[in-house]
Design a protein around this nucleic acid. Structure first.
Lengths: 233, 233
DNA sequence: CTTGATTGAATTGTCGACAATTAATTATAC
DNA sequence: GTATAATTAATTGTCGACAATTCAATCAAG
């Protein structure tokens, strides 16, 4: 009966996705028994998964009170964007510095492929995935697993807000499509190809900063989305 | 009997300290029952703590195999140093940019106090604490909790190697004391005071890079320390 | 002597139970 | 009617137990 399979892993994936998408409302308490029941497991694997997610910044924990969803605030999201800048600027620098010519060409080829699909993509969800992949691929070029790890965590925690933002942009302006919104992807690639470190760094910085500036508005939209069904507020 | 107190917290602190100090040998498996017994608890709180530590990068986990101590390798430590550079250079930039004059002065006063004790400190352990505090205080100046959080995690994971390194430096060269080893602390402060962003960034980068260069040797020393008692290798 | 199978011991994964605590509800006083 | 106290319900924290699996040791065959 107890099949000693990896329930924690399954539960972790599910809860993480829920936390990413704010299916738990910001600051709200998470009910362990309800979660466990919904997964058809006991509380033990659920709690283990929740502990991991606390350490990853998706949830918070108060002793004897329980687990809570992370808050959603512009300043919090802003911090994540700033951290992305920290990680990605250094990552691109290292990628340029550490890569051989052939490695750099391989990286650029990977980026080109991502960008090809990106440019003709209309689905906001897929668009976001591709954008993340572009940036993570560059980070992998740094040959620094730690930077990649941090970046992936930051991405997951920003994801929800970015997706809402992208959906709105997609609905409002048809002209405001992928390639027009982010012309700097190819610019970044150009600088990488020429090994122009500081230019690449600056471009990435500005690239992310541009997104950061929409944050406050995007967070407001995100709140609207989260509380869309409730009308008794 | 079950006093519903925060055992996980206690256990977490203890296990984390053990993991920091490589009291578990690199790559070795961690025995849950033995740990639990040594703490006088059941396995439940132990496993919850272990899960947190996996997410924080102190341990690894393989399904149906268990928890393992993180590996100790020069390249791993190097990655952590590089990540520190990423975080700290951006942090100091933000600190300068975001702080009012009075906030900047308050930060400098804090740094001065840390440096005062630092300069006359002879204990390697305390010395390391103070150095970390210096850097974390600057990071706090960025008003970005995320950067601080990341930095503190990186620090904890580098700590063991740095401490070994410091102890050796302390034993070998008396002339090679604190202030002579790191003249750039005050330089960094000077640039912060003058709001010279790029100069401050460069100095911090070089400051950390210098440490990074000792890494390979320091890791070798760390290994020697870890396996010092065992003679059956 | 090495290789491979078989058995036995040690370890992990999950569960259900229960005490302790916190939160919610009702009752009571003013 | 509001505020405070007492009671009840819901939730968390930890435990011991047990099945499933992995690991170690023993033994057999080549």
């Amino acid at each position: 009966m107890t099949k000693t399979e990896d329930r924690v892993g399954r539960v972790y994936d599910l809860v993480r996705k829920m936390a990413e998408n704010f299916e738990f409302k910001p600051e709200s308490q998470i009910n362990e028994v309800a979660l466990a029941k919904s997964f058809g497991t006991s509380r033990t694997p659920v709690r283990e998964a929740l502990n991991r997610l606390v350490a990853e910044g998706f949830l918070t924990f108060q002793a004897r009170r329980g687990f809570f969803c992370r808050p959603l605030s512009p300043s919090q999201i802003l911090s994540l964007y700033e951290a992305r800048i920290a990680v990605e600027t250094e990552a691109v620098r290292l990628a340029i510095r550490k890569s051989s010519d052939s490695q750099l060409e391989a990286l650029l080829e990977t980026l080109r492929r991502v960008l090809t699909e990106y440019d003709q993509c209309k689905d906001p969800g897929r668009l976001l995935e591709l954008d993340e992949q572009f940036h993570v691929d560059i980070a992998k070029g740094s040959k620094n697993q730690e930077l990649v790890r941090i970046l992936e965590n930051l991405n997951a925690r920003i994801r929800f807000v970015r997706l809402i933002d992208l959906k709105h942009a997609y609905l409002n302006g048809g002209a405001d499509t992928a390639s027009s919104r982010i012309p700097s992807h190819s610019t970044i690639m150009q600088y990488i190809a020429n090994r122009e470190e500081s230019a690449a760094v600056d471009t990435i910085r500005k690239h992310i900063e541009r997104r950061r500036e929409e944050t406050t508005e995007a967070v407001a939209k995100a709140f609207a989305e989260i509380y869309i069904v409730d009308d008794d507020a």
